[in-house]
Amino acid sequence: MKIVCLIPARLESTRLPGKMLKKIGEYPVIVQTYLAAKKLNLFDDIWVVTENKEIGKAIEDLNGKVFYSTKPHNSGSDRIAEAAEAIEADVIVNVQGDTPLIYKESMIKLLDCFRNNSTIRVDLASLMTKLDETENANDSNIVKVVVDNNDFALYFSRSPIPFSKNNEVDINYYKHIGVYVFRKEALLNFYNSPQTPLEKVESIECLRYLEIGKKIKMVYTDEFTLEIDTNKDLVNAITYFKNN
Results as ranks from 00 to 15, higher is better:
76 G>F: 07
81 A>H: 06
76 G>H: 08
84 A>T: 00
58 A>C: 12
82 E>I: 03
59 I>R: 15
61 D>H: 08
67 F>G: 00
89 A>Q: 12
61 D>I: 06
75 S>Q: 09
79 R>T: 03
62 L>I: 08
78 D>R: 04
81 A>M: 05
72 P>G: 04
83 A>F: 11
60 E>Y: 07
74 N>T: 06
74 N>E: 10
79 R>I: 01
76 G>P: 04
74 N>H: 14
64 G>I: 13
53 K>H: 11
53 K>N: 10
52 N>A: 00
82 E>Q: 13
61 D>W: 10
66 V>M: 13
87 I>E: 13
84 A>K: 01
79 R>C: 10
77 S>L: 12
90 D>F: 05
70 T>G: 01
58 A>W: 05
79 R>Q: 10
84 A>N: 03
54 E>G: 03
72 P>N: 05
78 D>H: 03
57 K>L: 15
78 D>C: 00
51 E>Y: 02
57 K>R: 12
58 A>H: 11
58 A>S: 12
74 N>L: 09
81 A>S: 03
85 E>T: 04
72 P>Q: 03
85 E>R: 07
72 P>H: 02
57 K>S: 09
75 S>K: 01
63 N>Q: 15
89 A>L: 09
58 A>L: 07
52 N>R: 05
79 R>L: 13
58 A>D: 10
77 S>M: 10
83 A>N: 13
57 K>F: 05
54 E>K: 15
88 E>C: 01
82 E>N: 04
56 G>K: 06
89 A>V: 04
54 E>L: 11
64 G>F: 15
82 E>W: 04
77 S>Q: 15
84 A>R: 03
65 K>E: 12
69 S>P: 02
55 I>F: 09
78 D>V: 00
67 F>I: 00
88 E>K: 07
63 N>D: 14
78 D>E: 14
54 E>N: 11
71 K>I: 01
55 I>D: 15
69 S>D: 08
65 K>H: 09
61 D>T: 10
89 A>T: 09
83 A>V: 09
85 E>D: 06
73 H>T: 12
51 E>P: 00
78 D>G: 00
83 A>M: 14
